[in-house]
Simulated assay, not measured.
Amino acid sequence: MNPIKAVHILDDPMPEYGDHEPTDDPLQILRHSTAHLLAAAVTELYPGTKYAIGPAIKEPPGFYYDFDFTKPISESDLPAIESRMRRIAQEGRPFEKEILPREKAIEEFRKRGQDYKLELIADKVMGDGVSVYRTGDFLDLCLGPHVNSTRDLKAFKLQRVSGAYWRGDEKKPQLTRIYGTAWQSQKELDDYMKFLEEAEKRDHKKLGKDLKLFAVDDRVGPGLPLWLPDGATIRRELERFIVDEELARGYQHVRTPDVARLDLFRQSGHAQLYAEYMYPPMKFEDGEELELRPVNCPHHIVVYQTELRSYRDLPLRIAE
């Protein structure tokens, strides 16, 4: 009888949930294992919670896990979750890999009420075998590898809570994402937390408010600063510096409209390739469609085409 093999589809790893391919990077393995530790703690503290996906991530360095809680949690709940993680870590529960027959894996996750895992098995796993990892009573759909036991996980910290749509689709359920970081030693963790503390002191949002450089108001919109007098002065000086540098390097300055006919961006390919990242076009009764430009390039090509050029004109440097 041929042994059961686990075959997982990895050419569509759902990048919004991190890289699910196996790795031999010890730090990434440790962080992935800590994500499992987090899920094990959550399912013990909050029975009935459904767990989705929990990868190691490189930026910010650490891990996360997405959960569907029966009732909302907040960052005030993180210390209790972290405390349970430490208790499980001290117990030294082994990470045990198994290849389950497909129907057995479906039965196991259905028994636990883990609908997201059932969906992943249906969509992402091919073949007769399903790779899972057990950590005590906790079972996860995973290719691994992992550390030997939870006792290997000593330097970790839960950091924040945010929302995330299942599989990055706003039409699907919104889950609770818990972020954390994990390191190979307590000193590395302490150094990283100190780095974050210092970085927060230099956060541009905090400095902008404290120094009265700009203000942000929900009525205007996120990421849309209102430049205050001192901030406007700094911005003006920076703009002058940039223009002077460009002129010194042979650039010619032009000024082009902030909008253009949508056809211009169809011709450049932006409308076809980047429509989801562009603002919707402004449509008028006469059928005209104007688009807020995502880049300057199409306008500058039109500037180039305003007269007959010679190779002697090259390179032609245009800026605005």
Results as ranks from 00 to 15, higher is better:
Pro145Val: 09
Glu119Ile: 10
Leu207Trp: 07
Ile53Pro: 00
Ile57Trp: 06
Arg255His: 08
Ser74Cys: 08
Leu316Asn: 02
Leu139Glu: 06
Val216Ser: 05
Arg266Cys: 03
Leu196Asp: 02
Cys142Met: 12
Asn2Met: 10
Tyr279His: 13
Asp25Pro: 01
Gln272Leu: 11
Lys157His: 15
Leu120Tyr: 12
Gly136Asn: 08
Asp210Ser: 09
Glu108Asn: 04
Glu96Trp: 01
Arg312Ala: 13
Glu285His: 11
Ile53Glu: 00
Gln267Asp: 10
Pro225Tyr: 10
Glu21Leu: 15
Thr176Glu: 05
Val147Phe: 03
Pro94Lys: 06
Ala182Tyr: 04
Arg240Ser: 14
Gly18Met: 08
Leu45Gly: 02
Asn148His: 10
Glu107Asn: 10
Ser310Asp: 12
Val295Trp: 02
Pro15Asn: 01
Arg235Asn: 07
Gly129Glu: 02
Asp313Ser: 07
Asp77Thr: 08
Leu290Asp: 00
Ser268Arg: 14
Val303His: 12
Leu78Asp: 06
Pro94Cys: 03
Leu100Glu: 07
Cys297Pro: 02
Asp68Leu: 15
Leu226Asp: 00
Lys71Asp: 05
Gln174Lys: 14
Asp19His: 06
Arg312Tyr: 05
Ile234Met: 14
Glu197Gln: 13
Val132Ile: 15
Asp11Gln: 08
Glu59Cys: 00
Asp263Thr: 12
Phe214His: 08
Arg309His: 11
Glu91Asn: 08
Phe69Trp: 10
Pro298Gln: 13
Thr70Pro: 00
Ser131Tyr: 06
Glu245Ser: 09
Glu107Ser: 14
Glu276Leu: 05
Tyr179Trp: 15
Thr49Tyr: 01
Pro72Tyr: 01
Pro13Ser: 03
Tyr64Thr: 01
Gly129Gln: 07
Gly287Asn: 07
Pro225Thr: 06
Arg151Leu: 11
Ile234Gln: 09
Arg86Lys: 15
Ala155Gly: 06
Arg255Thr: 10
Ser185Trp: 04
Lys104Leu: 13
Asp68Val: 00
Lys201Gln: 12
Leu224Gln: 14
Tyr304Ala: 14
Arg167Gly: 00
Asp12Cys: 02
His270Trp: 12
Tyr279Thr: 05
Gly62Ala: 04
Val302Lys: 13
Glu307Cys: 07
Arg160Phe: 06
Lys206Thr: 13
Lys157Asp: 01
Glu16Phe: 11
Leu143Cys: 04
Leu141Gly: 04
Glu200Phe: 04
Pro47Ser: 02
Ile99Trp: 12
Ile318Lys: 11
Glu276Asn: 12
Gly208Val: 09
Leu228Asn: 05
Leu226His: 11
Gln184Phe: 03
Asp191Thr: 13
Ala56Pro: 03
Leu10Lys: 11
Asp286Pro: 05
Val259Asn: 05
Ile53His: 01
Ser185Gly: 01
Gln186Thr: 08
Asp203Arg: 13
Pro60Trp: 06
Ile99Leu: 11
Ser162Met: 12
